[in-house]
Design a protein around this nucleic acid. Structure first.
Lengths: 301, 301
DNA sequence: ACCATCGCCGTG
DNA sequence: CACGGCGATGGT
Protein backbone atom coordinates (compact mmCIF):
# COMPACT_ATOMS: atom_id res chain seq x y z
CA UNK A 1 0.00 0.00 0.00
CA UNK A 2 2.07 2.80 -1.27
CA UNK A 3 -1.02 4.93 -1.50
CA UNK A 4 -0.99 7.53 1.18
CA UNK A 5 -3.45 6.95 3.93
CA UNK A 6 -6.66 8.91 3.87
CA UNK A 7 -7.43 8.04 7.49
CA UNK A 8 -6.63 9.82 10.71
CA UNK A 9 -5.38 13.33 11.31
CA UNK A 10 -4.41 15.58 8.42
CA UNK A 11 -0.98 17.20 8.56
CA UNK A 12 -1.13 20.82 9.62
CA UNK A 13 -4.74 20.60 10.78
CA UNK A 14 -5.15 20.79 14.53
CA UNK A 15 -8.13 19.73 16.54
CA UNK A 16 -10.25 22.84 17.00
CA UNK A 17 -9.24 24.49 13.73
CA UNK A 18 -12.07 26.38 12.07
CA UNK A 19 -13.11 26.65 8.43
CA UNK A 20 -15.58 28.79 6.57
CA UNK A 21 -16.83 26.37 3.95
CA UNK A 22 -16.85 22.89 2.49
CA UNK A 23 -14.56 23.93 -0.36
CA UNK A 24 -11.96 25.14 2.11
CA UNK A 25 -12.04 21.80 3.95
CA UNK A 26 -11.94 20.00 0.63
CA UNK A 27 -8.94 21.95 -0.58
CA UNK A 28 -6.88 21.11 2.47
CA UNK A 29 -7.87 17.44 2.33
CA UNK A 30 -9.81 17.41 5.57
CA UNK A 31 -13.12 16.42 3.99
CA UNK A 32 -13.01 15.02 0.51
CA UNK A 33 -16.49 16.07 -0.49
CA UNK A 34 -17.75 19.40 -1.70
CA UNK A 35 -21.22 18.39 -0.70
CA UNK A 36 -22.29 15.46 1.45
CA UNK A 37 -21.77 14.59 5.05
CA UNK A 38 -19.83 11.36 4.63
CA UNK A 39 -16.50 11.17 2.84
CA UNK A 40 -15.33 7.67 2.03
CA UNK A 41 -15.30 4.72 -0.30
CA UNK A 42 -17.97 2.06 0.20
CA UNK A 43 -15.75 -1.00 0.55
CA UNK A 44 -12.69 0.80 1.96
CA UNK A 45 -14.07 2.85 4.78
CA UNK A 46 -15.09 6.41 5.63
CA UNK A 47 -12.46 8.92 6.67
CA UNK A 48 -14.50 11.97 7.66
CA UNK A 49 -18.00 13.19 8.34
CA UNK A 50 -19.63 16.55 8.80
CA UNK A 51 -22.40 16.89 11.34
CA UNK A 52 -24.33 20.07 10.78
CA UNK A 53 -27.90 19.56 11.82
CA UNK A 54 -29.13 18.32 8.48
CA UNK A 55 -30.76 15.32 10.10
CA UNK A 56 -33.04 15.98 12.99
CA UNK A 57 -32.47 12.50 14.33
CA UNK A 58 -28.79 13.11 14.99
CA UNK A 59 -27.89 13.31 18.65
CA UNK A 60 -24.73 14.95 19.92
CA UNK A 61 -23.37 14.28 23.39
CA UNK A 62 -19.90 15.66 22.86
CA UNK A 63 -17.75 12.57 23.04
CA UNK A 64 -20.58 10.43 21.73
CA UNK A 65 -22.59 11.05 18.60
CA UNK A 66 -25.58 9.22 17.14
CA UNK A 67 -25.23 9.86 13.44
CA UNK A 68 -27.73 9.20 10.67
CA UNK A 69 -26.79 7.61 7.36
CA UNK A 70 -27.33 9.10 3.93
CA UNK A 71 -29.84 8.53 1.15
CA UNK A 72 -33.53 7.84 0.85
CA UNK A 73 -34.46 11.51 0.63
CA UNK A 74 -35.68 13.65 -2.22
CA UNK A 75 -34.39 17.06 -3.16
CA UNK A 76 -36.55 18.64 -0.51
CA UNK A 77 -34.91 16.46 2.13
CA UNK A 78 -38.02 14.36 2.64
CA UNK A 79 -37.73 10.63 3.20
CA UNK A 80 -39.24 8.83 0.25
CA UNK A 81 -37.50 5.45 0.41
CA UNK A 82 -35.39 3.16 2.57
CA UNK A 83 -31.75 4.08 3.05
CA UNK A 84 -29.49 1.49 1.47
CA UNK A 85 -26.35 0.06 3.01
CA UNK A 86 -24.06 1.38 0.32
CA UNK A 87 -21.87 4.39 -0.47
CA UNK A 88 -21.23 6.41 2.65
CA UNK A 89 -23.32 4.14 4.86
CA UNK A 90 -21.39 1.05 3.88
CA UNK A 91 -18.15 3.00 4.25
CA UNK A 92 -19.03 3.73 7.87
CA UNK A 93 -19.72 0.04 8.51
CA UNK A 94 -16.35 -0.86 7.02
CA UNK A 95 -14.76 1.73 9.30
CA UNK A 96 -16.43 0.02 12.24
CA UNK A 97 -15.31 -3.43 11.14
CA UNK A 98 -11.76 -2.39 10.35
CA UNK A 99 -11.44 -0.08 13.34
CA UNK A 100 -10.55 2.96 11.28
CA UNK A 101 -10.38 6.43 12.81
CA UNK A 102 -13.01 8.88 11.59
CA UNK A 103 -12.48 12.64 11.40
CA UNK A 104 -15.47 14.49 12.79
CA UNK A 105 -16.26 18.04 11.71
CA UNK A 106 -19.06 19.98 13.35
CA UNK A 107 -20.91 22.69 11.45
CA UNK A 108 -22.85 25.58 12.94
CA UNK A 109 -26.18 24.46 14.45
CA UNK A 110 -28.11 26.49 16.97
CA UNK A 111 -29.74 23.37 18.34
CA UNK A 112 -26.44 21.69 19.13
CA UNK A 113 -24.49 23.07 22.06
CA UNK A 114 -21.35 21.26 20.86
CA UNK A 115 -21.43 22.93 17.46
CA UNK A 116 -19.47 26.11 16.60
CA UNK A 117 -21.39 29.35 16.28
CA UNK A 118 -20.39 29.83 12.68
CA UNK A 119 -18.68 27.84 9.97
CA UNK A 120 -17.09 24.44 10.59
CA UNK A 121 -14.70 23.10 13.19
CA UNK A 122 -12.48 20.00 13.13
CA UNK A 123 -13.20 18.11 16.33
CA UNK A 124 -10.78 15.19 16.09
CA UNK A 125 -10.99 11.44 15.68
CA UNK A 126 -13.85 9.15 16.58
CA UNK A 127 -14.47 5.47 16.06
CA UNK A 128 -17.64 3.84 14.76
CA UNK A 129 -18.76 1.75 17.71
CA UNK A 130 -21.88 0.17 16.20
CA UNK A 131 -24.52 0.54 13.55
CA UNK A 132 -28.18 -0.41 13.29
CA UNK A 133 -31.29 0.64 11.46
CA UNK A 134 -34.54 2.22 12.49
CA UNK A 135 -37.84 2.80 10.85
CA UNK A 136 -38.45 6.52 11.02
CA UNK A 137 -41.75 8.35 11.35
CA UNK A 138 -41.93 8.42 7.58
CA UNK A 139 -42.13 4.63 7.59
CA UNK A 140 -38.83 4.34 5.77
CA UNK A 141 -35.65 2.80 7.02
CA UNK A 142 -32.65 4.86 8.12
CA UNK A 143 -29.19 3.70 9.18
CA UNK A 144 -27.72 4.98 12.39
CA UNK A 145 -24.19 4.97 13.72
CA UNK A 146 -22.84 5.37 17.23
CA UNK A 147 -19.56 7.30 17.22
CA UNK A 148 -17.24 7.49 20.22
CA UNK A 149 -14.38 9.91 20.57
CA UNK A 150 -10.86 8.51 20.49
CA UNK A 151 -7.98 9.75 22.66
CA UNK A 152 -8.07 11.27 26.07
CA UNK A 153 -10.07 8.47 27.58
CA UNK A 154 -13.33 10.23 26.88
CA UNK A 155 -14.63 6.90 25.70
CA UNK A 156 -14.37 5.52 29.19
CA UNK A 157 -16.81 8.04 30.50
CA UNK A 158 -19.57 7.34 28.05
CA UNK A 159 -22.13 5.55 30.12
CA UNK A 160 -25.76 4.83 29.76
CA UNK A 161 -28.24 7.02 31.53
CA UNK A 162 -27.17 9.30 34.31
CA UNK A 163 -23.87 10.90 35.17
CA UNK A 164 -20.74 8.84 35.35
CA UNK A 165 -20.17 7.02 38.60
CA UNK A 166 -17.46 8.83 40.54
CA UNK A 167 -14.05 7.21 40.30
CA UNK A 168 -13.36 6.95 44.02
CA UNK A 169 -14.48 3.78 45.66
CA UNK A 170 -17.14 3.75 48.27
CA UNK A 171 -20.40 2.15 47.40
CA UNK A 172 -20.37 -0.62 44.90
CA UNK A 173 -18.08 -3.50 44.15
CA UNK A 174 -17.85 -3.30 40.38
CA UNK A 175 -16.31 -0.66 38.16
CA UNK A 176 -18.61 1.64 36.26
CA UNK A 177 -20.39 -0.20 33.51
CA UNK A 178 -19.68 0.58 29.93
CA UNK A 179 -21.93 0.09 27.01
CA UNK A 180 -21.04 -3.49 26.28
CA UNK A 181 -19.87 -6.54 28.13
CA UNK A 182 -17.05 -6.86 25.68
CA UNK A 183 -15.53 -3.93 23.90
CA UNK A 184 -13.39 -4.60 20.93
CA UNK A 185 -11.36 -1.47 20.51
CA UNK A 186 -9.61 -1.96 17.26
CA UNK A 187 -6.84 0.46 16.38
CA UNK A 188 -5.77 -0.51 12.97
CA UNK A 189 -2.55 0.28 11.26
CA UNK A 190 -2.28 0.62 7.51
CA UNK A 191 -0.16 -2.51 7.62
CA UNK A 192 -2.76 -4.60 9.39
CA UNK A 193 -5.40 -3.39 7.00
CA UNK A 194 -3.31 -4.43 4.04
CA UNK A 195 -2.73 -7.86 5.53
CA UNK A 196 -6.47 -8.40 5.82
CA UNK A 197 -6.92 -7.71 2.14
CA UNK A 198 -3.90 -9.85 1.31
CA UNK A 199 -5.60 -12.84 2.92
CA UNK A 200 -9.02 -11.97 1.52
CA UNK A 201 -10.25 -11.51 5.10
CA UNK A 202 -9.86 -15.21 5.78
CA UNK A 203 -8.42 -16.73 8.95
CA UNK A 204 -4.96 -18.17 8.32
CA UNK A 205 -5.82 -21.10 10.56
CA UNK A 206 -9.36 -22.14 9.61
CA UNK A 207 -10.19 -20.07 6.54
CA UNK A 208 -13.21 -18.53 8.21
CA UNK A 209 -14.46 -15.27 6.77
CA UNK A 210 -17.30 -13.58 8.61
CA UNK A 211 -19.58 -11.91 6.08
CA UNK A 212 -21.58 -8.96 7.25
CA UNK A 213 -23.72 -6.75 5.09
CA UNK A 214 -21.09 -4.06 5.29
CA UNK A 215 -18.20 -6.32 4.41
CA UNK A 216 -16.08 -9.15 5.80
CA UNK A 217 -14.71 -9.12 9.35
CA UNK A 218 -11.33 -10.48 10.37
CA UNK A 219 -8.67 -9.51 12.92
CA UNK A 220 -4.99 -8.79 12.61
CA UNK A 221 -2.94 -10.29 15.43
CA UNK A 222 0.59 -9.52 16.49
CA UNK A 223 2.73 -12.61 16.93
CA UNK A 224 5.10 -10.93 19.36
CA UNK A 225 3.05 -8.37 21.27
CA UNK A 226 3.80 -4.68 20.95
CA UNK A 227 4.71 -2.72 24.04
CA UNK A 228 6.52 -3.63 27.21
CA UNK A 229 8.03 -5.97 27.85
CA UNK A 230 7.83 -7.94 24.60
CA UNK A 231 8.47 -4.96 22.32
CA UNK A 232 7.50 -6.74 19.14
CA UNK A 233 7.79 -4.66 15.95
CA UNK A 234 4.76 -3.34 14.14
CA UNK A 235 5.81 -4.73 10.81
CA UNK A 236 4.76 -7.14 8.10
CA UNK A 237 6.69 -10.05 9.59
CA UNK A 238 4.97 -9.82 12.95
CA UNK A 239 1.28 -9.90 12.09
CA UNK A 240 -1.04 -12.68 11.06
CA UNK A 241 -4.69 -12.76 10.08
CA UNK A 242 -7.01 -14.63 12.44
CA UNK A 243 -10.71 -15.02 13.16
CA UNK A 244 -11.77 -13.86 16.63
CA UNK A 245 -11.76 -17.40 18.03
CA UNK A 246 -8.27 -18.21 16.87
CA UNK A 247 -7.07 -14.77 17.90
CA UNK A 248 -8.18 -15.45 21.46
CA UNK A 249 -6.66 -18.93 21.36
CA UNK A 250 -3.36 -17.57 20.06
CA UNK A 251 -3.17 -14.84 22.69
CA UNK A 252 -3.98 -17.31 25.47
CA UNK A 253 -1.34 -19.77 24.29
CA UNK A 254 -3.81 -22.52 23.44
CA UNK A 255 -1.83 -22.97 20.26
CA UNK A 256 1.38 -21.71 18.75
CA UNK A 257 3.19 -22.04 15.44
CA UNK A 258 6.28 -24.04 14.47
CA UNK A 259 8.89 -22.80 12.03
CA UNK A 260 7.32 -24.89 9.27
CA UNK A 261 3.98 -23.25 10.14
CA UNK A 262 2.43 -26.43 11.51
CA UNK A 263 0.34 -25.68 14.56
CA UNK A 264 1.28 -26.73 18.08
CA UNK A 265 -1.52 -27.40 20.54
CA UNK A 266 -4.19 -27.89 17.89
CA UNK A 267 -4.23 -29.69 14.56
CA UNK A 268 -3.58 -27.86 11.34
CA UNK A 269 -1.13 -25.64 9.58
CA UNK A 270 -0.97 -21.89 9.18
CA UNK A 271 -1.80 -20.82 5.65
CA UNK A 272 0.98 -18.46 4.62
CA UNK A 273 0.94 -16.78 1.22
CA UNK A 274 4.08 -16.27 -0.81
CA UNK A 275 4.68 -12.59 -0.26
CA UNK A 276 4.12 -12.75 3.49
CA UNK A 277 7.44 -13.31 5.22
CA UNK A 278 6.79 -14.05 8.87
CA UNK A 279 9.73 -13.53 11.21
CA UNK A 280 10.69 -16.93 12.59
CA UNK A 281 12.17 -15.27 15.65
CA UNK A 282 8.73 -13.95 16.50
CA UNK A 283 7.19 -17.39 16.18
CA UNK A 284 9.92 -18.70 18.46
CA UNK A 285 9.19 -15.94 20.96
CA UNK A 286 5.53 -16.86 21.05
CA UNK A 287 6.33 -20.54 21.55
CA UNK A 288 8.85 -19.75 24.27
CA UNK A 289 6.65 -17.41 26.25
CA UNK A 290 2.99 -17.92 25.42
CA UNK A 291 2.40 -21.54 24.46
CA UNK A 292 0.90 -23.41 27.38
CA UNK A 293 3.72 -25.38 29.01
CA UNK A 294 3.48 -29.11 29.56
CA UNK A 295 3.44 -28.77 33.32
CA UNK A 296 0.20 -26.88 33.16
CA UNK A 297 -2.49 -27.67 35.68
CA UNK A 298 -5.76 -28.14 33.85
CA UNK A 299 -8.93 -27.03 35.56
CA UNK A 300 -11.08 -29.93 36.62
CA UNK A 301 -14.21 -28.72 34.95
CA UNK B 1 -25.16 -15.88 42.81
CA UNK B 2 -26.25 -14.68 46.15
CA UNK B 3 -22.69 -14.83 47.32
CA UNK B 4 -21.32 -11.36 47.80
CA UNK B 5 -18.78 -10.32 45.24
CA UNK B 6 -15.15 -10.30 46.23
CA UNK B 7 -14.17 -8.28 43.20
CA UNK B 8 -13.84 -4.56 42.67
CA UNK B 9 -13.71 -1.73 45.16
CA UNK B 10 -14.33 -2.35 48.85
CA UNK B 11 -16.96 -0.19 50.54
CA UNK B 12 -15.44 2.58 52.62
CA UNK B 13 -11.97 2.13 51.16
CA UNK B 14 -10.92 4.96 48.88
CA UNK B 15 -8.19 4.89 46.31
CA UNK B 16 -5.11 6.30 48.05
CA UNK B 17 -6.04 5.06 51.52
CA UNK B 18 -3.05 3.91 53.55
CA UNK B 19 -2.57 0.95 55.89
CA UNK B 20 0.15 -0.08 58.28
CA UNK B 21 0.16 -3.84 57.89
CA UNK B 22 -1.23 -6.92 56.21
CA UNK B 23 -3.48 -7.72 59.16
CA UNK B 24 -5.11 -4.32 58.88
CA UNK B 25 -5.85 -4.81 55.19
CA UNK B 26 -7.05 -8.30 55.93
CA UNK B 27 -9.42 -7.11 58.66
CA UNK B 28 -11.10 -4.59 56.40
CA UNK B 29 -11.41 -7.09 53.56
CA UNK B 30 -9.09 -5.30 51.17
CA UNK B 31 -6.60 -8.15 50.89
CA UNK B 32 -7.71 -11.54 52.07
CA UNK B 33 -4.28 -12.83 53.02
CA UNK B 34 -2.15 -12.41 56.12
CA UNK B 35 0.85 -13.38 54.12
CA UNK B 36 1.02 -13.76 50.38
CA UNK B 37 0.96 -11.36 47.49
CA UNK B 38 -1.98 -12.75 45.55
CA UNK B 39 -5.43 -13.12 47.06
CA UNK B 40 -7.84 -15.26 45.08
CA UNK B 41 -9.16 -18.69 44.25
CA UNK B 42 -7.48 -20.66 41.49
CA UNK B 43 -10.49 -21.35 39.30
CA UNK B 44 -12.54 -18.27 40.25
CA UNK B 45 -10.14 -15.41 39.84
CA UNK B 46 -7.87 -13.13 41.88
CA UNK B 47 -9.32 -10.08 43.59
CA UNK B 48 -6.25 -8.29 44.94
CA UNK B 49 -2.47 -8.26 44.89
CA UNK B 50 0.24 -6.56 46.88
CA UNK B 51 3.35 -5.33 45.13
CA UNK B 52 6.05 -4.57 47.64
CA UNK B 53 9.40 -5.32 46.09
CA UNK B 54 9.51 -8.95 47.09
CA UNK B 55 10.31 -9.94 43.54
CA UNK B 56 13.13 -8.13 41.81
CA UNK B 57 11.70 -8.91 38.40
CA UNK B 58 8.61 -6.80 39.00
CA UNK B 59 8.43 -3.62 36.96
CA UNK B 60 6.26 -0.69 37.91
CA UNK B 61 5.34 2.05 35.45
CA UNK B 62 2.48 3.57 37.38
CA UNK B 63 -0.52 2.72 35.28
CA UNK B 64 1.19 -0.42 33.99
CA UNK B 65 2.74 -3.16 36.11
CA UNK B 66 4.67 -6.27 35.16
CA UNK B 67 3.96 -8.62 38.04
CA UNK B 68 5.60 -11.94 38.84
CA UNK B 69 3.68 -15.04 39.85
CA UNK B 70 4.11 -17.01 43.04
CA UNK B 71 5.78 -20.28 43.95
CA UNK B 72 8.95 -22.12 43.00
CA UNK B 73 10.95 -20.59 45.83
CA UNK B 74 12.32 -21.95 49.05
CA UNK B 75 11.98 -20.33 52.46
CA UNK B 76 14.90 -18.07 51.74
CA UNK B 77 13.16 -16.76 48.64
CA UNK B 78 15.49 -18.52 46.24
CA UNK B 79 14.14 -20.05 43.05
CA UNK B 80 14.50 -23.81 43.24
CA UNK B 81 11.83 -25.02 40.81
CA UNK B 82 9.46 -23.95 38.04
CA UNK B 83 6.45 -21.92 39.00
CA UNK B 84 3.23 -23.80 38.35
CA UNK B 85 0.08 -22.39 36.83
CA UNK B 86 -2.02 -22.95 39.91
CA UNK B 87 -3.15 -21.18 43.08
CA UNK B 88 -2.62 -17.44 42.73
CA UNK B 89 -1.08 -17.73 39.29
CA UNK B 90 -4.06 -19.53 37.85
CA UNK B 91 -6.38 -17.11 39.62
CA UNK B 92 -4.72 -14.22 37.79
CA UNK B 93 -5.20 -16.00 34.46
CA UNK B 94 -8.88 -16.51 35.23
CA UNK B 95 -9.15 -12.81 36.05
CA UNK B 96 -7.66 -12.06 32.66
CA UNK B 97 -10.02 -14.43 30.87
CA UNK B 98 -13.12 -13.29 32.73
CA UNK B 99 -12.16 -9.64 32.69
CA UNK B 100 -12.32 -9.23 36.45
CA UNK B 101 -11.09 -6.07 38.17
CA UNK B 102 -8.03 -6.51 40.36
CA UNK B 103 -7.32 -4.40 43.44
CA UNK B 104 -3.69 -3.29 43.50
CA UNK B 105 -1.94 -2.42 46.76
CA UNK B 106 1.56 -0.99 46.75
CA UNK B 107 3.86 -1.57 49.71
CA UNK B 108 6.85 0.54 50.70
CA UNK B 109 9.84 -0.04 48.39
CA UNK B 110 12.72 2.35 48.03
CA UNK B 111 13.42 1.08 44.55
CA UNK B 112 9.92 1.89 43.30
CA UNK B 113 9.05 5.52 42.82
CA UNK B 114 5.35 4.66 42.67
CA UNK B 115 5.41 2.98 46.08
CA UNK B 116 4.46 4.74 49.32
CA UNK B 117 7.27 5.69 51.71
CA UNK B 118 5.92 3.53 54.48
CA UNK B 119 3.21 0.91 54.92
CA UNK B 120 0.74 0.02 52.20
CA UNK B 121 -1.51 2.06 49.91
CA UNK B 122 -4.61 1.02 47.95
CA UNK B 123 -4.03 2.17 44.38
CA UNK B 124 -7.28 1.15 42.73
CA UNK B 125 -8.40 -1.30 40.08
CA UNK B 126 -6.34 -2.83 37.31
CA UNK B 127 -7.07 -5.49 34.74
CA UNK B 128 -4.87 -8.41 33.80
CA UNK B 129 -4.04 -7.69 30.18
CA UNK B 130 -1.91 -10.74 29.40
CA UNK B 131 0.23 -13.45 30.90
CA UNK B 132 3.27 -15.38 29.76
CA UNK B 133 6.21 -17.24 31.19
CA UNK B 134 9.92 -16.61 31.22
CA UNK B 135 12.94 -18.59 32.20
CA UNK B 136 14.66 -16.61 34.88
CA UNK B 137 18.37 -16.33 35.56
CA UNK B 138 18.02 -19.27 37.91
CA UNK B 139 17.04 -21.43 34.95
CA UNK B 140 13.58 -21.95 36.36
CA UNK B 141 10.30 -20.83 34.91
CA UNK B 142 8.35 -17.90 36.30
CA UNK B 143 4.91 -16.60 35.30
CA UNK B 144 4.48 -12.95 34.52
CA UNK B 145 1.42 -10.77 34.26
CA UNK B 146 0.86 -7.42 32.58
CA UNK B 147 -1.54 -5.27 34.57
CA UNK B 148 -3.15 -2.10 33.22
CA UNK B 149 -4.96 0.47 35.31
CA UNK B 150 -8.71 0.82 34.85
CA UNK B 151 -10.61 4.13 34.90
CA UNK B 152 -9.50 7.56 33.94
CA UNK B 153 -8.26 6.49 30.55
CA UNK B 154 -4.76 5.96 31.83
CA UNK B 155 -4.70 2.78 29.83
CA UNK B 156 -4.84 4.76 26.63
CA UNK B 157 -1.52 6.37 27.38
CA UNK B 158 0.40 3.21 27.96
CA UNK B 159 2.62 2.96 24.94
CA UNK B 160 5.79 1.12 24.22
CA UNK B 161 9.06 2.95 24.37
CA UNK B 162 9.23 6.70 24.50
CA UNK B 163 6.76 9.32 25.62
CA UNK B 164 3.23 9.26 24.36
CA UNK B 165 2.68 10.90 21.02
CA UNK B 166 1.03 14.27 21.56
CA UNK B 167 -2.71 14.25 21.02
CA UNK B 168 -2.91 17.20 18.64
CA UNK B 169 -2.69 16.41 14.99
CA UNK B 170 0.19 17.51 12.85
CA UNK B 171 2.47 14.82 11.60
CA UNK B 172 1.08 11.38 11.01
CA UNK B 173 -2.12 9.99 9.71
CA UNK B 174 -2.87 7.31 12.28
CA UNK B 175 -3.74 7.65 15.94
CA UNK B 176 -1.08 6.77 18.47
CA UNK B 177 -0.47 3.06 18.49
CA UNK B 178 -1.49 1.01 21.42
CA UNK B 179 -0.01 -2.22 22.53
CA UNK B 180 -2.18 -4.53 20.52
CA UNK B 181 -4.03 -4.54 17.26
CA UNK B 182 -7.14 -5.61 19.07
CA UNK B 183 -7.83 -4.74 22.66
CA UNK B 184 -10.50 -6.73 24.37
CA UNK B 185 -11.53 -4.63 27.30
CA UNK B 186 -13.85 -6.84 29.22
CA UNK B 187 -15.82 -5.30 32.05
CA UNK B 188 -17.64 -8.14 33.63
CA UNK B 189 -20.67 -7.98 35.80
CA UNK B 190 -21.45 -10.61 38.37
CA UNK B 191 -24.43 -11.50 36.24
CA UNK B 192 -22.41 -12.13 33.12
CA UNK B 193 -19.97 -14.21 35.09
CA UNK B 194 -22.74 -16.37 36.44
CA UNK B 195 -24.17 -16.87 32.96
CA UNK B 196 -20.83 -18.20 31.78
CA UNK B 197 -20.81 -20.82 34.50
CA UNK B 198 -24.46 -21.59 33.85
CA UNK B 199 -23.61 -22.55 30.28
CA UNK B 200 -20.40 -24.30 31.25
CA UNK B 201 -18.49 -21.72 29.18
CA UNK B 202 -19.99 -23.07 25.98
CA UNK B 203 -21.28 -20.98 23.09
CA UNK B 204 -25.09 -21.09 22.95
CA UNK B 205 -24.89 -21.24 19.16
CA UNK B 206 -22.13 -23.71 18.37
CA UNK B 207 -21.18 -25.24 21.73
CA UNK B 208 -17.57 -24.13 21.36
CA UNK B 209 -15.56 -23.91 24.59
CA UNK B 210 -12.05 -22.52 24.26
CA UNK B 211 -9.81 -24.34 26.74
CA UNK B 212 -6.74 -22.51 27.94
CA UNK B 213 -4.38 -23.70 30.62
CA UNK B 214 -5.88 -21.19 33.01
CA UNK B 215 -9.48 -22.13 32.28
CA UNK B 216 -12.16 -21.87 29.60
CA UNK B 217 -12.84 -18.67 27.64
CA UNK B 218 -16.26 -17.47 26.55
CA UNK B 219 -17.98 -14.10 26.17
CA UNK B 220 -21.20 -12.70 27.54
CA UNK B 221 -23.12 -10.64 24.98
CA UNK B 222 -25.97 -8.24 25.48
CA UNK B 223 -28.91 -8.85 23.19
CA UNK B 224 -30.13 -5.26 23.36
CA UNK B 225 -27.06 -3.10 23.81
CA UNK B 226 -26.56 -1.07 26.94
CA UNK B 227 -26.23 2.67 26.68
CA UNK B 228 -27.69 5.21 24.36
CA UNK B 229 -29.80 4.94 22.41
CA UNK B 230 -30.79 1.30 22.89
CA UNK B 231 -30.77 1.38 26.69
CA UNK B 232 -30.99 -2.36 27.13
CA UNK B 233 -31.10 -3.58 30.73
CA UNK B 234 -28.15 -5.27 32.36
CA UNK B 235 -30.16 -8.24 33.52
CA UNK B 236 -30.45 -11.98 33.17
CA UNK B 237 -32.97 -11.77 30.33
CA UNK B 238 -30.73 -9.64 28.15
CA UNK B 239 -27.48 -11.58 28.00
CA UNK B 240 -26.42 -14.67 26.12
CA UNK B 241 -23.24 -16.70 26.07
CA UNK B 242 -21.29 -16.66 22.79
CA UNK B 243 -17.88 -17.58 21.44
CA UNK B 244 -15.92 -14.64 20.02
CA UNK B 245 -16.87 -15.48 16.44
CA UNK B 246 -20.59 -15.63 17.10
CA UNK B 247 -20.38 -12.57 19.30
CA UNK B 248 -18.97 -10.56 16.42
CA UNK B 249 -21.55 -12.03 14.05
CA UNK B 250 -24.38 -11.19 16.44
CA UNK B 251 -23.21 -7.61 16.96
CA UNK B 252 -22.81 -7.09 13.22
CA UNK B 253 -26.27 -8.45 12.49
CA UNK B 254 -25.05 -11.43 10.48
CA UNK B 255 -27.55 -13.46 12.42
CA UNK B 256 -30.38 -12.87 14.85
CA UNK B 257 -32.73 -15.00 16.92
CA UNK B 258 -36.42 -15.79 16.49
CA UNK B 259 -38.85 -16.11 19.39
CA UNK B 260 -38.55 -19.90 19.20
CA UNK B 261 -34.75 -19.46 19.38
CA UNK B 262 -34.14 -20.66 15.83
CA UNK B 263 -31.45 -18.60 14.18
CA UNK B 264 -32.07 -16.16 11.37
CA UNK B 265 -29.28 -15.55 8.88
CA UNK B 266 -27.42 -18.75 9.69
CA UNK B 267 -28.52 -22.31 10.35
CA UNK B 268 -29.07 -23.59 13.85
CA UNK B 269 -30.90 -22.89 17.04
CA UNK B 270 -29.89 -21.10 20.21
CA UNK B 271 -29.34 -23.51 23.07
CA UNK B 272 -31.31 -22.08 25.99
CA UNK B 273 -31.30 -23.79 29.36
CA UNK B 274 -34.39 -24.02 31.52
CA UNK B 275 -33.59 -21.41 34.12
CA UNK B 276 -32.52 -18.80 31.57
CA UNK B 277 -35.51 -16.66 30.63
CA UNK B 278 -34.53 -14.46 27.71
CA UNK B 279 -36.67 -11.39 27.15
CA UNK B 280 -38.46 -11.88 23.84
CA UNK B 281 -38.79 -8.12 23.49
CA UNK B 282 -35.00 -7.90 23.40
CA UNK B 283 -34.76 -10.54 20.70
CA UNK B 284 -37.35 -8.59 18.74
CA UNK B 285 -35.33 -5.42 19.21
CA UNK B 286 -32.23 -7.07 17.83
CA UNK B 287 -34.11 -8.43 14.82
CA UNK B 288 -35.73 -5.06 14.18
CA UNK B 289 -32.57 -3.02 14.41
CA UNK B 290 -29.49 -5.16 13.92
CA UNK B 291 -30.29 -8.08 11.64
CA UNK B 292 -29.00 -7.36 8.17
CA UNK B 293 -31.99 -6.29 6.10
CA UNK B 294 -32.84 -8.02 2.85
CA UNK B 295 -32.04 -4.97 0.78
CA UNK B 296 -28.43 -5.14 1.87
CA UNK B 297 -25.72 -4.59 -0.69
CA UNK B 298 -23.24 -7.41 -0.48
CA UNK B 299 -19.61 -6.65 -1.14
CA UNK B 300 -18.39 -8.04 -4.42
CA UNK B 301 -15.42 -9.83 -3.00
C1' DA C 1 -5.99 -32.38 57.31
C1' DC C 2 -2.37 -30.45 54.85
C1' DC C 3 0.26 -26.91 52.84
C1' DA C 4 1.96 -22.72 50.88
C1' DT C 5 2.54 -17.77 51.48
C1' DC C 6 5.73 -10.61 48.02
C1' DG C 7 4.91 -10.90 56.85
C1' DC C 8 6.62 -9.80 61.10
C1' DC C 9 9.43 -9.37 65.03
C1' DG C 10 13.13 -10.96 67.31
C1' DT C 11 18.00 -11.41 67.66
C1' DG C 12 23.17 -10.96 65.62
C1' DC D 1 20.19 -4.29 58.16
C1' DA D 2 20.44 -9.27 57.26
C1' DC D 3 18.86 -13.50 58.70
C1' DG D 4 16.09 -17.00 60.76
C1' DG D 5 12.25 -18.80 63.05
C1' DC D 6 7.57 -18.13 64.29
C1' DG D 7 2.93 -17.77 62.80
C1' DA D 8 -2.16 -17.46 61.16
C1' DT D 9 -5.11 -17.89 57.61
C1' DG D 10 -7.67 -19.73 53.67
C1' DG D 11 -7.26 -22.49 49.59
C1' DT D 12 -6.56 -27.19 48.06
Amino acid sequence: MSVKDRFGHIPAVMVGDKFDSYVEMHAIGLHNRVQGGISGVARQGAESIVISGGYEDDQDFGNEIIYTGQGGRNEAGKHISDQQLKRGNQALVVSEIEGLPLRVIRGADRNNKFAPETGYRYDGLFRVESHWWETGKSGFKVWRFRLLELDGGAVENVNSGGPTEPTPAGNNTMPARVSSTVQRIVRDTTLARYLKYYYDHKCQVCGTRLESAGGPYIEAAHVRALGRPHDGPDDWGNIICLCPNHHVMFDLGIFSIADDFSLIGIDGKLNVKNGHIIGLEHLAYHREHFLNPLNKTLPES
